[in-house]
Structure formats: structure tokens, C-alpha cells
Design a protein around this nucleic acid. Structure first.
Length: 270
DNA sequence: ACGCAGGCCTGGGCGC
DNA sequence: TGCGCCCAGGCCTGCG
């Protein structure tokens, strides 16, 4: 299930199987994803995948000319299988490769998408306005202070806004705010600069650590679509309503913020 | 410009 | 065992 570390893990998992390979066939079994799978996808046979990369949670496969833009949504996953392997329920699409393998897109909730972009995918309307990568140099305290200035919405909403910074989902927003000791509902524009610095470091730390642990799922990538058990033990507040805070021993609370569950420790976060 | 609610889907877990 | 309800890791779109 994809937050940024999962998407990164997925990318690393498919790159060795995909880059440099020729697509020998395409099969679309379910066209109705978040947006309909366009006909150009069906016509990819014969193309070579020159490169595979990631921008935020979007995976980009360079099939020059053009690119495949793929998003895993809430429940999507990619799997490398032997060509001819049985299709599971909710396998919606497969790219067969000249290696004798195939990449399958699996997505029960169908919030994901598979799109084709004729030009530079970074200029695609879904991607061009995305904020900086959280692990890159462009995401720093000064930047965050700039975008937070005057904002009256909660700091958590700001963190989860992909125009501000990409890839920080509900889990990691909760975790990073806990690490930084900031209340999720505190108005973004009223968080002191020094605390924003702590927050940026916390975001980088929690995502970085999670990607490292995603490395363990890499190993299983071919076998399972890898429900990774790794992060669950590491979570400090997410999903722990009513349980004791691992720092102060107080009770972890949950409330709904902009339609999403927010977990936090009232004792540790102000 | 900003903040918010709605909508897209299926499946799992829970209480009755 | 079954049913209805609530919840879920995302994010675009349109409204005020």
C-alpha cells in the first residue's frame, strides 16, 4: 500500500525488470480506473522502456516517444510475474516484456491510474504543479516557512498538500508531527521557524527510515505484492488511538481532520 | 488564494 | 452466517 516509501520501493523493484526491455504486448482487462486507461497504452507493443523514474507518488516509464504515468492510488501495486501467470482478481493491466516476464497492475479500489503522455511527463498537468520532493534539497525550513506564512489551516493539511511537498501521506504526516512535537491542527502560519526546521527534519527522517525498511520488501517483491509488516512496529502514533504514548505514557488520541483520521499525543504535541 | 466537501471504488472488520 | 455500517495508506474537482 503506497505512501512514498512504497512507491519508491516499487520503483526500485521494477527497474531491473523494466528498463531496457521491449514491451511485447499489452493487455487491459479493466479500463475504468481513476481515469479511463487511454488507447495509447494498448498500442505500446514494440516500444522500449528507456527509463523508469518517480515524481512524488507518480511512476514514470519513459517509452520514447512519450511516457506512461502510473499512480498506485490507495490500494495499487505492481508485480513482476512470469508471462502467462494466472491473473488475480483486480489485476487490471499487464505489460509483457521481451524477458518473458510481465508487469501487472493490481488495484482493488481502482483509485490508481495508468495514463499516457505524449510529451515530457514532468509537464503533464497532474505533475507540473507538484511541490518539491521531501527528501530533496528543495524541501527545507526556509521554503516551508514561505509557503506556511499566513496560512490558517492546520499544519498537517499543509504537509499533505502535494503542491507544498509531495509524498507525505496521512501516516507520515501524523508521525512527523509527533516527532516534531507539533499539534496537527496548529495553524501552519503560526508555527515558529525553529519548529518548522524540526518538522522538516522529522519528515525526512521518517520517510528516509521507511524507505530503508522498504528495502526488506524489495527482496520479496517478486513473490508477493508485499504487505510490508515493517512499518507497523515503528509507528509511534498512527493507528494507536487509546494506546499509551511511547514517549510520555499519555493516551494517543484520534480526531478527524479534513476527512482524514489524525492521531496525536496531547501531552507531546502543542 | 485558500479551505473545505464530495466523489471515485472495493474489502475488511465490527456489532447485531 | 449474514447484513448493514464504518473505516481505509490518495488526490482531483468544484464550490464558496
Amino acid at each position: 500500500m503506497p505512501e512514498l516509501p512504497e512507491v519508491e520501493t516499487t520503483l526500485r523493484g521494477v527497474v531491473p525488470h523494466l528498463v531496457g526491455r521491449r514491451i511485447t504486448g499489452v493487455e487491459v482487462r479493466q479500463r475504468r480506473l481513476r481515469w479511463p486507461v487511454p488507447k495509447q497504452i494498448d498500442a505500446l507493443a514494440g516500444r522500449v522502456v528507456a527509463d523508469a523514474s518517480r515524481r512524488g507518488k507518480y511512476l514514470l516509464f519513459d517509452v520514447a516517444p512519450g511516457a506512461v504515468i502510473l499512480h498506485l492510488g490507495m490500494s495499487g501495486s505492481l508485480r513482476v510475474v512470469a508471462a502467462g501467470a494466472g491473473w488475480r482478481k483486480h489485476d487490471h493491466l499487464a505489460l509483457s516484456l521481451d524477458s518473458g516476464r510481465a508487469i501487472r497492475f493490481h488495484d482493488p479500489r481502482r483509485f490508481g491510474c495508468v495514463l499516457f503522455c505524449a510529451g515530457d511527463p514532468l509537464a503533464h498537468r497532474l505533475i507540473r504543479d507538484l511541490g518539491p520532493e521531501p527528501l530533496g534539497d528543495g524541501f527545507h525550513a526556509g521554503y516551508l516557512a514561505g509557503v506556511a506564512a499566513g496560512r490558517r489551516g492546520g499544519i498537517k493539511q499543509l504537509l499533505m498538500d502535494s503542491r507544498v511537498v509531495v509524498g507525505v501521506g496521512n501516516i507520515y504526516a501524523c508521525e512527523a508531527l509527533f516527532l516534531a512535537g507539533i499539534h496537527p491542527r496548529r495553524a501552519a502560519g503560526r508555527v515558529a521557524g525553529s519548529r518548522l526546521e524540526t518538522l522538516v527534519a522529522a519528515v525526512k527522517e521518517v520517510l528516509g527510515r521507511s524507505i530503508e525498511m522498504g528495502g526488506t520488501t524489495l527482496r520479496d517483491f517478486l513473490r508477493e505484492d508485499g504487505e510490508p509488516g515493517y512499518f507497523k512496529q515503528s509507528l509511534l502514533v498512527y493507528g494507536r488511538e487509546g494506546e499509551p504514548c511511547k514517549r510520555c505514557g499519555g493516551v494517543v488520541r484520534r480526531f478527524v481532520q479534513v476527512g482524514r483520521s489524525t492521531f496525536y499525543c496531547p501531552g507531546c504535541q502543542r
